[in-house]
Amino acid sequence: MQLLFTLCGLAAVGFVLLITVYLVISGIPAIQKIGLFNFLFGETWAASQDQYGILPLILTSVYGTAGAVVIGVPIGFFTAVFLAKVAPKKVANVIRPAISLLAGIPSVVYGLVGMCVLVPALRDWLNLPAGDSLLAAIIVLAVMILPSIISLSETALVAVPKEYEEASLALGATKLETYFRICAPAAKSGIAAAVVLGIGRAIGEAMAIMMVAGNVANMPSLTRSVRFLTTGISIELNYSQDGSLQRQALFSIGLVLFLFIMMINAFLNLILKREKER
């Protein structure tokens, strides 16, 4: 019996190895043909002209994720403080499941609402020829990372010992000062983990932004149509020929994205480990 269970455990390790190996094997050939430098720093992606530079994709992913974090993290943080500390129990107990519903909504649904509401709204407000843009993607991503930021930060804030709060209040600090100057710093590793998790979510999201970002491989600009690393793969995956350089280049993008994600995960594990040790 033990052998059987060991094999199950081994399966998880095996899958990770399988994924890594296959991504590396299929990702390398295109990079070899194009050249690592030309691939990573080329400014033009045009399959029709056999040009495969993914700098616009990398920058779009970085800017898009940063933008989502800049918008989503403060909103999520303050909402978490409200839920953990300010809200009456009854109110918090209504909002909390509603936020987990927000987390459970499929990403295509976010894409749909973004497409039908946000994109036309941006077009009209900003007088753009089309609302499909980096800005639209950033807003959708910010909404999508909100639930995980809220729930992780809230958990971290709730875990702050009551004694710290009492001590601060007894020193004549107001409740708000106590939340921001004592509770938030005491929960900082949990909140940091929430942010990193949000970054991971944002950089890995494909479908929702495929529906709102326009998907042209421009160098990133807020109001222009852009292509992310993820959508760089998804938009051409169905149309590329098996074995063609184009398809191989998509696998190479996958490899780059995978490396990004592994870095973020390693960072996340580091934070969580430090938290555990304390």
């Binding site: 004694e163 009492e166 601060s168």
Partner: peptide, 8 residues
Amino acid sequence: FQKPNPFP
């Protein structure tokens, strides 16, 4: 307080 509660 009863238990020492310095801030972290």
